[in-house]
Computed example of a mutant assay.
Amino acid sequence: MQLDLMVPGLPLRQATELARDAASAGMAGVVVTETGRTAYLTCAALALAGEPLDILTGIAVAFPRSPMVTAQVAWELAEASGGRFRLGLGSQVRAHIERRFGMPYDPPGPRMREYLLALRAAFRAFRGEEPLSFEGRYWSLRLLPAAWSPGPIAVPDPPVDLAAVNPWMLRLAGELADGVHVHPLNTEPYLRETVLPALAEGAARAGRQVADLTVICPAFVAAGDRPGQVERWWERARAQVAFYGSTPNYRFLFEQLGRPEVPERIRARQKAGDLAGMAKEVDDELLEQFCVAGDWASVADALRARYGGVASRVVSYFAGQAWLEDRRALGPWGELARALAG
Rank of each mutant, 00 (worst) to 15 (best):
E34D: 05
T35S: 14
G36S: 09
G36E: 09
R37F: 14
T38N: 07
Y40K: 01
Y40H: 14
L41A: 15
L41Y: 08
T42S: 09
T42W: 03
C43D: 04
A45V: 02
L46H: 00
L46V: 02
L46R: 00
A47L: 07
L48T: 13
L48R: 15
A49S: 13
A49I: 08
G50P: 08
P52E: 10
L53R: 04
L53K: 04
I55N: 05
L56M: 13
T57H: 06
T57L: 05
T57I: 09
G58R: 04
A60Q: 08
V61R: 13
A62E: 09
A62D: 12
A62Y: 08
F63L: 15
P64A: 12
P64K: 12
R65N: 15
S66Q: 11
P67W: 03
P67N: 06
M68T: 09
V69P: 00
V69S: 13
V69H: 11
T70L: 05
Q72V: 13
W75M: 02
W75Q: 01
E76G: 15
A78G: 15
E79S: 15
G82H: 05
G82Y: 10
G83V: 11
F85K: 10
F85E: 03
R86C: 06
L87N: 08
G88Y: 05
G88W: 05
G88C: 06
L89F: 03
G90M: 03
Q92C: 01
Q92R: 09
A95D: 14
I97G: 05
R99F: 08
R99P: 00
R100K: 11
R100P: 00
R100M: 11
G102Y: 01
D106T: 09
P107I: 11
P108D: 09
P110W: 01
P110I: 04
P110Q: 05
R111Q: 04
R111V: 02
R111E: 03
M112R: 01
R113D: 04
